[in-house]
Simulated scan of single mutants.
Amino acid sequence: MKNFIKPIFMLVAGTMIFSCSDDDGMGENPVRPSSTAHLYATSHNGSVTRYDINTSETTTYQTSSDDAEGIYYDGEDDSFTIVSRSSTSLESYIGIDKLETGVDLNIDIDLSSSSDLQSPRDIAVNGNIYVVADNADVDGDDTTADGRFFIYTKTSSGFQLRNVVTVDFKVLGIEFIGDDLYAVVDTTNKLAVFTNFSSAYMTNMNVSATKTVEVEGIVRTHGLDYDDGTMVMTDIGDAASDSDGAFHVITNFDSKFNTTMDGGMISIGDQMRVSGGNTNLGNPVNLAYDANYDAVFIAEVANGGGRVLAFSEVSTSSGNRSPQINNSLSGASAVYFYTE
């Protein structure tokens, strides 16, 4: 049996810090903190908060947006890109580490897209391809389910809209695995995939998913994230409740998804579910999972007016668990975890 030093997250004076515990002192091939471990969180007030997992520093960036939902950090140009619901565009802010840390900062847009979006909800990135899920009603008939993916190419001068793909379900959370785009089917317990997404859908078109499956136990899914073979999905339950949320962990996801037929179901026995009063989960709208830390970070928008939560050892422990991190963040809408 390998013995690891496992990351344990703690909450001290409203900030996040990192500590280690050794299982039995052997310390063989320990998993240690990354030199950089930053959690970025957006809010419906337009701000972005960066939590340094290895220290107690918290930095708040007031962006040009009045409402942000969806975020991605790019280490190559040290930028974060947000999906702005107020400007209905992508906004990118470059050179974040060059700015002062541990304080509140007002920052200006460096790159942006045109205002193409209507009701943007999430972002997924594959190289220089940026996909935004937009859940505005497409056909003007709210009794029919539809949604759109806006596909942008990032350049040195901004984001160029390449094409728009319309689908036959309400969209929300999206995630690339390779070039396959996974998307939750809003108001349901379903998960859809579009294979070879960036290269197969090059023009404006209406398409159906390559495959759609149900995830047993979920009432209404919103967010998803994948890392190193594990998929984690949120369940907001009843949107009017601030205490019935959950998240599901599917290890060996690729095998389980591939062996489930189109229209079939991933059984609850092939998952782990974290839910209950101790979790502070009501409407967990977005999440980030990191396999090295074996931790999930969650943007919880309803409970307590908004929280950033984190749970460790999620691939091995389920049930009514208390979070290792529980930070208040009004209107929390999305998270992104970056390490190097």
Rank of each mutant, 00 (worst) to 15 (best):
M1F: 10
F4T: 02
M16Q: 01
Y40C: 11
V48K: 05
T55N: 09
E57G: 09
Y61R: 12
T63N: 09
S65R: 06
D67S: 09
D77I: 00
T88M: 05
S92G: 06
S92N: 14
G95Y: 15
E100L: 15
G102R: 09
L105Y: 03
D108W: 02
I109P: 07
G127K: 00
Y130N: 12
V132Y: 09
F150M: 15
F159Q: 14
L161N: 11
V164E: 14
V164I: 15
V165L: 00
V167F: 08
G173T: 00
F176Q: 01
D180F: 02
V185H: 05
V193T: 03
F194V: 05
M202A: 09
S208T: 14
I218Q: 13
R220S: 12
R220I: 01
T230W: 02
T230Q: 00
V232I: 15
V232K: 05
I236M: 02
S241D: 11
D242W: 04
S243M: 08
F247L: 01
D254Q: 07
T260F: 12
M261E: 15
D262G: 13
I266H: 11
V274R: 04
L281W: 01
G282T: 02
P284S: 15
A291P: 05
F297I: 10
S317P: 12
G319D: 12
R321W: 02
Q324M: 01
I325D: 08
L329M: 14
S330A: 14
S330W: 04
F337T: 08
